[in-house]
């Protein structure tokens, strides 16, 4: 494992020289370390690059980390990871991605993750994306996430991409069975001429399923973000999405939320707000002794926390 990978790992996961629990470290398309545990088996895919991760039914309190790092330019990494979460398991999955390029050449990571959540299982999925290094080489991260939630299962996705990634297209798809719950918290900061697209489609097919989709984003400088969400209620269910964006300088944000109620008892809500930082927030923090710049940084920091 090279030093850049180590630096990236520290930022995208809580790696401190080692991982607790099962892990697989992907470095420039290669495996730089793998450990399975008694309950969590990590295996290479036979037909294409990527992993199959089997979490035994009833596994409780374990963490599995599968960070991916691209440490130089001229890499286009594509990986397929499948997670099979056994019934009533309750685990944390940490899946960050760090991209570093210095040479002016582009670097890209494209991770296609599929989650199969068995009945009554619970997964907390943490994903942090960062871009590092100098030069004009484009840093791209294009994750695709597909999740199938069986009855009574629960998936909580916490994703953050706070700067440094030049291009990103995030695609998230989910299908929910009866009483399954999906909670998504996404945070994106773009600056300079970065571009981020995020696209969600959640289909609630089972009775009393629910989704809560919260997206917070900040678009600064000349950056551009597009948000698109589709929530489909095919059964009695509750759906809520909230898209809050702060724009500054020439930042641009397009938000297009869609709600599709296909059942008489589907209750779907969307809230969206785009605007610059409220002037009174800056005033308030200045009365506590901050400069305007400090106040803005504090507000954005809190907003994306």
């Amino acid at each position: 494992m090279n030093e850049i990978t180590k630096d990236l790992l520290r930022e995208i996961s809580d790696w401190d020289g080692e991982f607790k629990g099962a892990y697989n470290i992907r470095e420039d398309g290669q495996c730089a370390g793998r450990v399975s545990s008694k309950n969590i088996k990590i295996e290479s895919k036979k037909d294409k690059p990527g992993l199959e991760i089997f979490i035994a039914p009833g596994t409780k309190g374990e963490t599995v980390s599968i960070p991916a790092c691209v440490t130089h330019g001229d890499v286009d990494d594509l990986v397929y990871n499948d997670f099979f979460v056994g019934e009533n398991a309750d685990v944390i999955i940490v899946a960050g991605c760090g991209i570093h390029t210095e040479t002016g050449e582009p670097a890209r990571h494209n991770g296609i993750h599929r989650f199969f959540l068995g009945k009554g299982s619970k997964v907390k999925y943490l994903e942090k994306h960062i871009g590092k290094g100098h030069g004009t080489g484009l840093r791209s991260i294009d994750p695709v996430t597909e999740a199938e939630l069986e009855e009574d299962s629960q998936l909580e996705m916490d994703t953050a991409q706070i700067g440094g990634v030049d291009r990103t297209t995030r695609i998230t798809r989910a299908q929910l069975g009866a009483r399954a719950k999906l909670l998504i918290r996404e945070r994106i900061l773009t600056e300079k001429d970065q571009n981020a697209k995020t696209d969600f489609k959640v289909e609630m097919n089972g009775k009393d399923s629910g989704v809560d989709l919260i997206s917070r984003s900040v678009a600064r400088d000349d950056s551009h973000q597009e948000y698109h969400s589709v929530i489909v209620g095919n059964a009695p269910c509750t759906g809520h999405s909230e898209c809050d964006a702060i724009i500054s300088e020439n930042g641009k944000v397009d938000a297009a939320p869609e709600l599709h109620a296909r059942d008489n008892d589907a209750a779907l809500i969307h809230e969206a707000a785009i605007g610059k930082i409220a002037g009174e927030q800056i005033l308030k923090l200045r009365t506590l002794g901050m400069t305007e710049e400090e106040a803005e940084a504090t507000i954005i920091d809190g907003f994306l926390s």
Binding site: E280, K284, L288
Partner: peptide
């Protein structure tokens, strides 16, 4: 503010994400 003037607003300001 740095000189020690403080002001509690009649209508306090709310902040998303700040505890």
């Amino acid at each position: 503010a740095k000189m020690g003037i403080s002001f509690a607003f009649q209508q306090p300001v709310r902040f998303k994400g700040i505890t």
